[in-house]
């Protein structure tokens, strides 16, 4: 494809702008985390570190349970993702491949749940969880995260299911497959990109959630990364080096994860997200 020069220039400029917008903050955080304290808060910030130290990381890992927070976050996010998928896939299948009375009403009810101001249920939910002994448990966080991710997940699956030609399903059914088998053997492989997208969405929702985790979790051993991170911010003093090291470390796992699944997520979203 040929492009006139001025469009190439415009494109390059736009790409540079977005690259700067997205990457510059990360560059500053990562390089900041190895700067000496005085350089981090210097009146004239430096783009390239003039000093180098790993003290902030050493302090972070020695004195806080960062690896534990990370483990908790991984557990909570993974389980949330799994349950979201388990609930969303059959629901999506029924909503978009079957017809039944009340379908539209129920689908709209699910979408309404998406419009839910989450802060509204913080207190009542705390009371309910307290009654059934779920306060200070990772299960509570999983439940909350699934509730927040599920409506969007169902909606996201919609065009994937809708895009499957009816004949394929019909053929499988004529071969004597029960709906469960049709779902498992035929549908799931066909909507795999959509499932990838839903999985990443659910994972990120859980990984980044802060408010509920901060109130529902009481003990240090069960904290997730966002709550653990807010813990090192400190009340009367801020140790920016420590914070930047903490920020870098909490970015790292999702970046690694995304290096593996990012392509599918993007492919999933772009193939079927919006119609």
């Amino acid at each position: 494809m040929k492009r006139p020069i001025r469009w190439t220039v415009a494109l390059t400029a736009a790409l540079a702008l977005f690259a700067g917008l997205v990457l510059l903050p990360f560059w500053l955080v990562l390089t900041g985390s190895v700067k000496a304290p005085a350089e981090i808060i210097a009146r004239q910030p430096t783009m390239v570190p003039h000093s180098f130290t790993l003290d902030h990381y050493a302090k972070l890992l020695a004195a806080s349970d960062y690896p534990v927070y990370m483990m908790n976050s991984l557990i909570v996010a993974s389980v949330s993702t799994l349950i979201t998928l388990l609930l969303a896939i059959p629901a999506g299948y029924a909503f978009f491949r079957m017809s039944f009375p009340g379908r539209e009403t129920l689908y709209r009810a699910i979408l309404l749940a998406y419009a839910f101001p989450s802060i509204v249920i913080l207190i009542p939910l705390f009371g309910i969880f307290a009654k059934i002994g779920l306060i200070d448990s990772r299960i509570a966080l999983v439940l909350v995260n699934v509730a927040f991710a599920l409506p969007f997940a169902v909606w996201l699956l919609r065009s994937f299911f809708a895009g499957i030609p009816a004949e394929i399903e019909e053929a499988a059914r004529l071969d004597g497959g029960s709906p469960f088998i049709v779902l498992r053997r035929i549908m799931i492989p066909l909507v795999a990109p959509g499932i990838a997208a839903v999985a990443v969405f659910a994972f990120v929702t859980a990984w980044t959630e802060y408010v509920f985790a901060s109130v529902m979790i009481l003990s240090d051993a069960k904290r997730t990364v966002p709550v653990g991170f807010s813990g090192i911010i400190g009340q009367y003093q801020i140790d920016w080096g420590l914070l930047l090291a903490g920020a870098s470390l909490s970015i790292l796992p999702v970046v690694v994860l995304f290096a593996f699944v990012g392509r599918w997520f993007v492919a999933g979203l772009t193939e079927g997200a919006v119609k």
Binding site: K59, A63, G231, L242
Partner: peptide, 11 residues
């Protein structure tokens, strides 16, 4: 419960 969260204080 205390609110002295910086790691060295916890330590």
């Amino acid at each position: 419960w205390h609110m002295e969260q910086p790691p060295h204080r916890v330590e």
